[in-house]
Simulated assay, not measured.
Amino acid sequence: MLDVLSEARQPLAFSEIVESTGFVKSSCHRILAVLQGEGIIEYDKPSRTYRTGSRLHQWARSAWRRIDLQQVAAEPMNRLSETTEMNAALSILDGQTILYLRTVEQTPVRYAAHSGDHAPLHCTAAGKVFLAHLSDARRQELLDDLDFEKFTEFTLTSLDQMKRSLWETKNNGFGKAIKEEFLQVTGIAAPIFNEQDDVVACLSLWALEHTADTDSVIAQSELLIEAAQGISKIIGWRPS
């Protein structure tokens, strides 16, 4: 049904949708009602026609932004990873998790994140960056709903610990997660801003303990921030 509506050059009447989909009328009514309730399609009463809705359009715009962002970030990510000899990742906020859009591996690891994988907010450097830059209300909403699962002995599991870490993240300009998700891993992340000065993505660096100790990873924060700001400028951000 969505294929029919999205490919149509003009809004469709109910009878046209029934004919194009081959669904029986009762099924058509039921599916249209669900899609309309979710904002995926819209019904125009005067013309008695259906068309794709605002939520579907928002998904399409988000998908294009992600594709563009991946393309923009590809070269800076590769360069940063080669320069630091560390693994790099590009992620976005996706509900109560981060979603990896692109990864670059200098040191292949069995449990390393790949494109399409999700990770928790509370124990990843990128997750802390996203939380630190949200509005107070949205941050508190997410923190109230988070399950502070303990992955290692270093995982932050209390609200007070997390709030202190988020203050440090905002103040330093980058987030860090030291052995919090995996005992062998230290990671840092810097925000990528859009033209409205909103954080739309994060650029991360991480390394295994036997290839780079914690201090060595954190020492790359200036290069990381510089790379993230370079990507931000390409997508329209201007430093205030």
Rank of each mutant, 00 (worst) to 15 (best):
D136Y: 02
S216A: 15
E105T: 13
H210W: 15
N194F: 01
D94P: 08
H210C: 10
P108I: 10
T169Y: 08
T169S: 08
S135C: 01
L143Q: 14
L101C: 04
A126D: 12
V199C: 04
G127P: 08
D215T: 07
I192T: 05
E209A: 11
L203N: 05
L142C: 09
T155Y: 13
N78A: 11
L142M: 15
S81V: 13
T214P: 00
L90M: 02
E105H: 14
E105L: 14
A201G: 04
E209V: 09
F193P: 03
G173C: 07
A219L: 12
T211L: 07
L183G: 05
L166W: 04
T124L: 12
K176R: 15
F154M: 14
N172V: 00
D213M: 03
T107W: 14
H118D: 11
I178W: 05
A219T: 07
H122A: 04
L143C: 13
W206C: 13
K170S: 12
E105V: 01
A88P: 08
A189W: 02
L93M: 12
K179Y: 14
L80V: 03
A201K: 07
R102Q: 12
K128M: 09
D197R: 06
R102F: 12
L93D: 03
I192V: 10
Q196H: 02
N194V: 00
L208F: 14
F182Y: 13
Q184T: 04
L80T: 01
R110F: 15
P191N: 05
D215F: 05
S91V: 00
F148K: 05
E180T: 02
Y111D: 11
S135D: 07
A219N: 13
